[in-house]
């Protein structure tokens, strides 16, 4: 469904991403793990069109979408839940969701709002509340719901468990599992590697801007050198 070929992205003279090729198949949950600074956020940004890759390509459902503007990407069916959630704190919960569904028709949007209310009961209770008053866990659910409002074919999430208390981290992973059970396609960046691998069909390990390992979640969990691969410790 999604394929990147030799993706390289730089910030000025910094190569944040070097020659990254990965793929996500229909209905798969793919994890992308790696330490801080490995280039995970850059990778998602380059796929979503927030950043312009200097070389390589992004192919989504058979068509080359490299370098398209984010709104085009979204219309093509690629949604991103950004790092730190980035919900619109001045807008109410329902307004946040409506912004998420800005690309779909008005009647469809109403249906989707209902769907989100069912999927995230916490949000229904705070429908008209300003999103700035949500707790971290609620805000993360809102961010995911907001992205789902565009009916994405592929949902990308950037560090959904970041900055959450442990009990909320559990919640986030339960959510990922439930999304997987609905048959959605996910590409999730996480630093919480073990937990992520447990819910992934396949996963990639990114370090210093390069892919250093890949495999099924189970395979990677088995690998005793994962920690070293992960943070570059020499064993």
């Amino acid at each position: 469904m999604l394929e990147t070929v030799g993706l390289t992205t730089t910030y000025g003279s910094i190569a944040a991403l070097r020659d990254v090729s990965l793929s996500v198949g229909e209905g798969e949950v793919v994890g992308l793990i790696g330490p801080n600074g490995a280039g995970k956020t850059t990778l998602l940004g380059s796929i979503a069109g927030l950043l312009q890759p200097v070389s390589g390509s992004v192919v989504f459902e058979g068509s080359d979408v490299t370098g398209n503007a984010p709104d085009k990407m979204l219309k093509a069916g690629l949604a991103l839940v950004p790092e730190h959630r980035r919900i619109f704190t001045d807008l109410t919960v329902v307004e946040n969701l409506k912004v998420g569904g800005i690309t779909v028709g008005a009647s469809e949007r109403a249906g989707l709002l209902e769907e989100m209310a069912d999927l995230f009961p916490v949000l229904r209770d705070k429908w008209e509340t300003s999103a700035g008053f949500l707790s971290g866990g609620e805000a993360q659910q809102l961010a995911i719901a907001r992205a789902l409002m565009s009916k994405p074919r592929l949902l990308m999430m950037d560090e959904p468990s970041l900055g959450l208390a442990p009990v909320l981290v559990d919640l986030v992973f339960e959510l990922i599992e439930s999304l997987r059970n609905q048959g959605r396609t996910l590409l999730v960046v996480e630093q919480n590697a073990t937990r992520m691998l447990e819910v992934s069909d396949r996963a990639y390990v990114l370090r210093s801007g390069e892919l250093v390992a890949e495999g099924t979640g189970a395979e990677l969990l088995e690998r005793s050198d994962l920690f070293d691969t992960f943070v570059g410790g020499t064993s």
């Binding site: 927030l50 984010p70 980035r86 619109f88 307004e95 912004v99 800005i102």
Partner: peptide, 24 residues
């Protein structure tokens, strides 16, 4: 209106608004 919502969202956080499909 959806336009008003888009405008407020863009004023609050332009990059995220673009991610939501808002045409800059």
């Amino acid at each position: 209106t959806m336009f008003g919502l888009a405008l407020r969202a863009a004023a609050a956080d332009f990059d995220t608004a673009r991610l939501m499909g808002i045409d800059s």
